[in-house]
């Protein structure tokens, strides 16, 4: 039973991850008055990419081919560590929250290297921006996790998320609310969502993430899309697990509450994307530093 419980969170992520993207797109379409693509569209897209052949430019080397694979693998590894709200993860050890941040960084590093390997100045520009914002977003993630670690007194993600109960919320309401706001901003930043980047644009010069993957095709692009879905699931899971403090111990109850929470998160992100315009590029660092500040304030609030 325990073994079964621990594989639930990775399996859910692998199966349901793309559904989250579909829900966001559906919400945006609904707000705009369209019907939107079917909920299974991301799965169709990924399946189609995987069936196609890949085209590699003459200027690219093995680094370019390695990028998407490393990125996806690293996210698989992160899924093994990140708990899903009350549901424990298969792997848990002291300090694993830093490993998760490191794994996300390795994935980004691989994609950035692949983008640089094409030799295209356009992709180089995107890589530069991605790294610039990531350098600000990473401390924010670590700070938010540090706040959670401090509140719950644990140093591993699974015990931390076990410790975020309703009574923890009552005891440290301002702090946890601030950490949740940081995590929401991070979910938008890391997944190149609208106030920071626009995942649907391919033609504008201000795009960040999309420009890096322009040269990938076929299965590689499929891997990248699937990895994007998993990353959204991981960061969304961290946020939903924090704001949904139901720790009943009953697997089906916790699991369905988390599922509901993830669906609500997707709708909220869709709403944010519909209601907001993208920030000018110079305002993005301000936005991310502001989010990190929230966590610093939260941390100081529990220190005193």
């Amino acid at each position: 039973m325990a073994a079964f419980a621990s594989v639930i969170s990775p399996v859910c992520a692998l199966v349901l991850g793309p559904l989250l993207l579909a829900l966001i797109n559906r919400t945006k379409a609904f707000v705009a008055g369209r019907r939107g693509p079917p909920l299974l569209q991301p799965y169709f897209d990924i399946a189609k990419y995987l069936r196609r052949g890949a085209v590699y430019g003459d200027a690219t080397s093995w680094v370019f081919r390695l990028g998407p694979v490393v990125n996806l693998t690293v996210l698989f590894a992160a899924l093994l560590i990140v708990p899903w709200g009350a549901i424990r993860s298969p792997l848990s050890f002291s300090g694993d929250l830093i490993v998760v941040a490191g794994l996300l960084a390795v994935g980004r590093f691989a994609i950035v290297l692949a983008a640089l390997d094409t030799g295209s100045s356009f992709e180089g520009m995107g890589a530069s921006r991605e790294v610039h914002f990531a350098a600000l977003a990473e401390p924010a993630l670590l700070l938010a996790l540090a706040v959670l670690a401090r509140v719950t007194g644990a140093l591993s993600l699974t015990p931390i998320y076990q410790g975020i109960t309703a009574s923890a919320w009552v005891a440290a309401l301002p702090t946890l609310a601030l950490a949740a706001m940081t995590l929401l901003v991070l979910a938008l930043v890391e997944n190149s969502r609208i106030p920071v980047d626009d995942p649907t644009t391919h033609l504008e010069l201000t795009m960040i993430h999309e420009v890096m993957v322009l040269d990938h095709s076929g299965p590689d692009l499929g891997y990248i899309h699937y990895a994007a879905a998993l990353k959204l699931w991981i960061l969304g899971g961290l946020l939903v697990g924090l704001v949904m403090p139901l720790r009943s111990g009953a697997l089906w109850l916790d699991g369905s509450a988390m599922l509901l929470g993830m669906a609500i998160l997707a709708v909220v992100i869709g709403m944010i994307e519909s209601a907001m315009a993208r920030y000018r590029l110079v305002h993005v660092p301000q936005f991310i530093v502001g989010a990190a500040t929230l966590s610093v304030v939260g941390f100081i609030l529990i220190l005193v």
Binding site: L173, P174, T175, A177, L178, Q286, G290, T293, L294, V297, G298, L301
Partner: peptide
Amino acid sequence: LETVHALGLLSCFALLG
């Protein structure tokens, strides 16, 4: 008081940013 404190800090950071 703690809530006032947190909101007050946030308003200061908002003024700064």
